[in-house]
Design a protein around this nucleic acid. Structure first.
Length: 592
RNA sequence: GGUCUCAUAGCUCAACUGGAUAGAGCAACUGCCUUCUAAGCAGUAGGUUUCAGGUUCGAGUCCUGAUGGGAUCACCA
């Protein structure tokens, strides 16, 4: 595979230093880079760092090393030295044979040599509201990272931890009890998650009104909070829930099941899925046990009021509450229990949490606590911290109704895709069901690419007033290129075969060079957990193919050999687009 | 206030983790459909990489400071 050549090139550099300068280098010290496109060549060795060894000028060193290496490799057509940059240009035969190997390869890209068992937790919704744009980014990132790691050769378990209990859940339950008059998803003709979300917002509104009234009655803000009847009722509900009160549990289950049914529809449409589902209602007791055991082992300490804490001041952090005085659990309690249960179930090497960067502190603390408890898996706990999605007006806030709803957004993407396709009159000859499938593919493809092409660690500004683009650096452009490849392959009368006796057009060579880089991109994407690297690669693939397409006739090329080669390039492009698209969860239409 | 983080073309993003002349898309302008899908291609214009120092063969990238955003430091999750 591709790396073999790079390794042999590195080895030659090592030999060159041994022979020319009597200096022994290791291969790891030698870096081979891709040549900057504005210079001749494909691969570059930078000699600057080694001038102390060569004890000669950059140009002289480059020439000497270049001559030594070129003599050892038939694949090297020529080399040139610009300042301290030694550039190698390879023969067409090398690139043709590389392309030929790609065509017969079972799958594209080199896999990892050290596969591990990895759990990727993502989505992690609360069962008191529907999914919004922030969840969409989380879901797409988590799913894509799972796909990338699995494709790279790891054994991946996709997990979803559902926040199905706690005071916030009780708020929507209470509002439902007070205001709903027995409304159900079917009676209200509303998706279950949206129905419950409606009452969560309603609670907040009623609570604010109550506060305002109390404060108007002469109470301080703090007093008003204490005297809130709504909040007291919600707390009572939580206590009842923890005590196993039947009526409360029945209401809880009813609402949660409505929400799950709603989530299932959204997940399916987004194209994400899970291998394991965890619920906090099933892990918080385990968390409590672990905290209590930690206390008796002297890892934690108890305050006078009976609450249990961990002291992290030695690690530069604060004291952190682990269990309330009344014995009820907090977020951290649950996460400790969940971490342990996950490990009992799957015994993984690494546990990746795809969670927003606003929770960096929380995960730092979680990892420290697990270490203090002496858990063997603590080291493998990793927070994949991604940036928030923000609106021009600021952060998304469900309670205030300031959100972009996930289901609405997908509907809009579908509608826009339909509009654009109809504008171009490209709906002819397709059945209604095929058309509807196409609009879904295009709309969601544009959405997924839009969210995944950005570096995950950076925050995204989303302006709902400007719809997501279908031209330029977009998912649509990539899908269009795939459809174009498919169309050509459909009309081809001969099979793609790569002969070694043709000479390459610059656009053809650029495309093959680009294929060569996939190994490196895949490796980096897996290492950095960055779908953005795959997205960027995908875009470049389409870009290079389209340049080639406009420059070179394919089916009407002069000789059968050329037709075969160009069909080979087309087939490999299609395969690459489909493979990388799949890593992002994007579908590729064969016609559009 | 402490800690973390971000700042690149009018806008949205890249830049192979310290390499050569900082690249794409959108918006603007100019060409290219009687030939394999023009949701495309080729080109023009647009930059003191927020500012001031430093480190070295070399800095958008590393260090120090300043300015301006964001997050976090809850008996919320």
């Amino acid at each position: 595979m591709s790396n073999d050549f790079i390794i042999s090139l590195k080895q030659s550099v090592v030999e060159a230093f041994a022979s020319l300068y009597q200096h022994s280098l290791t291969q790891d010290e030698v870096k081979i880079e891709n040549t900057n496109p504005s210079f001749e060549g494909s691969f570059t060795f930078v000699v600057f760092p080694f001038l102390r060894i060569t004890k000669s000028k950059p140009e002289q060193s480059g020439e000497a090393i270049g001559s030594f290496i070129a003599a050892k490799h038939d694949e090297i057509k020529s080399f040139n030295v610009v300042k301290g940059f030694l550039n190698f240009e390879l023969t067409d035969a090398f690139w043709l044979s590389y392309l030929s190997n790609l065509q017969t390869a079972k799958s594209l890209g080199q896999k990892t040599t050290s596969p591990q068992k990895v759990m990727v937790e993502y989505s992690s919704p609360n069962t008191n509201k529907p999914l919004h744009l922030g969840h969409v980014r989380n879901n797409l990132l988590g799913y894509s990272i799972s796909k990338i790691l699995a494709y790279y050769g790891h054994n991946v378990v996709k997990a979803n931890l559902i926040n199905d209990r706690g005071i916030h859940i009780c708020k929507s339950m209470l509002a439902y009890q007070l205001f709903a008059n027995g409304e159900t998803p079917s009676s209200g003709n509303i998706k279950g998650d949206h129905l419950v979300g409606k009452y969560y917002v309603m609670f907040d509104k009623a609570y604010k009104e109550e506060q305002a009234a109390l404060i108007a009655g002469g109470l301080s803000e703090e007093e008003a909070k204490k005297q809130s009847s709504l909040m007291t009722q919600a707390r009572d509900m939580l206590t009842k829930w923890e005590q196993g009160d039947e009526e409360t549990l029945a209401l809880w289950e009813k609402l949660n099941n409505w929400v799950y049914a709603g989530f299932d529809i959204s997940y399916k449409r987004m194209g994400v899925e899970f291998d394991a589902i965890y619920k906090e209602s099933q892990t918080y007791l385990l968390g409590k046990e672990m905290v209590i055991k930690g206390l008796s082992d002297g890892v934690f300490f108890k305050k006078d009021d009976g609450s249990i804490w961990v002291d992290l001041t030695e690690d530069g952090l604060d004291q952190k509450l682990l269990l309330r005085a009344d014995g009820t659990s907090v977020y951290m309690t649950q996460d400790i229990g969940t971490a342990d249960l996950k490990y009992q179930d799957h015994n993984m090497d690494e546990s990746i949490y795809v969670v927003g960067n606003e929770q960096e502190y929380h995960f730092k603390v979680l990892k420290l606590i697990l270490k203090k408890l002496g858990k063997p898996y603590a080291e493998g706990v990793q927070h994949m911290s991604y940036g928030m999605v923000e609106l021009p007006s600021g952060k998304l806030k469900t309670r205030e109704g300031k959100v972009v709803d996930a289901d609405d957004l997908m509907d809009e993407m579908y509608a826009t895709a339909q509009e654009r396709t109809e504008e171009q009159g490209k709906t002819d000859g397709l059945e209604p069901t095929a058309l509807s499938e196409l609009f879904e593919t295009l709309g969601l493809g544009a959405l997924k690419y839009f969210l995944l092409k950005v570096d995950p660690t950076k925050r995204i500004l989303f302006n709902p007033a400007e719809s997501i683009d279908f031209h330029g650096n977009t998912g649509t452009f990539i899908q269009y290129t795939f459809a174009r490849c498919s169309s050509i392959l459909r009309s081809a009368s001969i099979t793609p075969t790569v002969s070694d006796s043709v000479s390459l057009d610059p656009t053809e060579k650029t495309l093959i060079e680009h294929f060569f880089r996939f190994d490196e991109v895949l490796k980096d994407a897996a290492k950095q957990m960055s779908p953005a690297l795959i997205a960027q690669y995908l875009y470049d693939t389409a870009k290079h193919y389209n340049s080639f397409y406009n420059q070179c006739p394919i089916l009407k090329a002069d000789t059968d050999e050329l037709v075969g080669l160009r069909l080979g390039l087309t087939a490999t492009t299609a395969k690459m687009l489909e493979t990388c698209g799949d890593l992002l969860g994007m579908k590729m239409p064969s016609k559009m």
